Computed example of a mutant assay.
Amino acid sequence: MDKKQQVGFIGLGAMGSLMATHLLSNSIEVHVYDIQSTLCNEIAEKGGIVHPHPKSVAEHSMVIICMLPNPSVVRSVILGENGVLEGVKRESVVIDMGTVGPSVEIECAERLQEKGAHLIDAPVGKGVWAAGSGELTILAGGDKEIIARVEDILNMLGEKIIYCGPLGSGQVVKLSNNLASCVNMAALSELYVLAQKNGIDIDVIQEALNGTAADSWHLHNSLPRVKEDEFSPGFKTKLAHKDLELVVGLGEELGIDLPVSSNALSWYNNAIDKGYEDLDWSALAKAALEKVESKSVK
């Protein structure tokens, strides 16, 4: 009997847990770590092997997937004490699949190369529903030969792999996607406020915009949530906020002014200030209306 392929998986949040479970269902031996032991235990019940720290995961895996929330966590997990770098084997490949921006990828890749290991960035498109079914869109950046080495794993997790360019390019493409979608949600929030203050129903807005240049995914998926006041998280407001901060930060690194993104970020700041960080990002519209109404009362 052939030995199972060993894959490390670090970060078992909403997306990561489903992705790790999907690998298990494809007969992969999955070695996991998350700072929350309860999440590790859930994967252990499905056959995953739990480790005490990222170093141990790296010691037992030639492919290590990271699905982490922000650059500082990636830096800590890979470069920190008991991190991946301390346990990584020569010719191992780290696949960073979170949305964290290009700078940290380049920093971590340089350190891993000192030990003969490799890193590719491969952030994902779509959402939780696709994470558990292997239907993600994967935006890969890095050396093509290294990407080819792990293509079998990427194909298990995604139905489409788009090669974006050298290391960090996947992150830039993902941030470009999130720039467009986050700004669109902010624009619809303003539209919602304008409509509500003029007594116009959401259904009328949807019908009027459907099929026009103003049509969008948010029009059909987020505005109905606003109407029903139903904000159970699909994509959390705090994650959209983080992504827009990364966009604005990347612009600052490059000396590029991004006024639309910066102004949209103010609406996400408003939603965070109102305590909506763990609600679906469609709660942006609810927070926007509350802000306008609070000014009216004053």
Rank of each mutant, 00 (worst) to 15 (best):
A130G: 08
R149Q: 15
L112W: 01
I147N: 05
A131W: 06
A140Y: 02
G132S: 06
N155P: 00
E110T: 13
H118M: 00
E151F: 02
L119A: 11
L112P: 01
E110L: 08
E145A: 14
G116L: 05
K144N: 13
E110F: 03
L139I: 07
D121M: 09
I153T: 14
L112F: 03
G142Q: 04
G127W: 09
A109R: 02
A148F: 04
N155L: 11
A130H: 08
N155T: 10
V150A: 06
Q113M: 12
I146D: 07
I153Y: 08
I120A: 09
D152A: 10
E114C: 09
G134T: 09
P123K: 00
E135T: 12
A148M: 03
E145F: 06
Q113P: 00
A122G: 03
L112M: 05
D143F: 02
A130S: 14
V128P: 01
A131I: 04
K126H: 14
G134A: 11
A140N: 09
G134R: 02
G141L: 11
V128A: 14
A122S: 15
P123H: 02
A148D: 13
G132T: 09
W129C: 00
I138C: 10
E114Y: 00
S133Y: 02
G134K: 03
A117W: 03
A130T: 07
A131G: 12
I120P: 01
G134M: 09
E110H: 08
A140D: 06
N155M: 11
G116F: 11
S133N: 14
L154T: 05
D143S: 14
R111S: 12
G134W: 06
A117T: 05
G142F: 01
P123V: 00
I138H: 06
G116S: 06
E135P: 00
A148S: 15
G125A: 13
E114K: 13
I120K: 06
L136F: 08
E135D: 14
A130R: 02
I147A: 13
R149D: 04
G134F: 11
I153H: 02
D121C: 11
L136N: 08
A130W: 09
N155W: 00
I120M: 07
L154E: 05
D121T: 02
E114S: 13
L112C: 07
V128Q: 14
E145M: 10
A140H: 04
V150P: 00
P123Q: 01
G142R: 04
A140K: 04
I120Q: 04
L136P: 05
V128D: 07
T137V: 15
H118D: 07
I120L: 08
W129A: 15
A140Q: 06
L136E: 12
N155I: 02
I146M: 03
P123Y: 03
D143H: 10
E114F: 00
V150K: 02
D143M: 10
A140C: 15
L154Y: 04
N155Q: 13
G127Q: 10
A148Q: 14
R149K: 15
I138M: 09
E151A: 13
P123T: 00
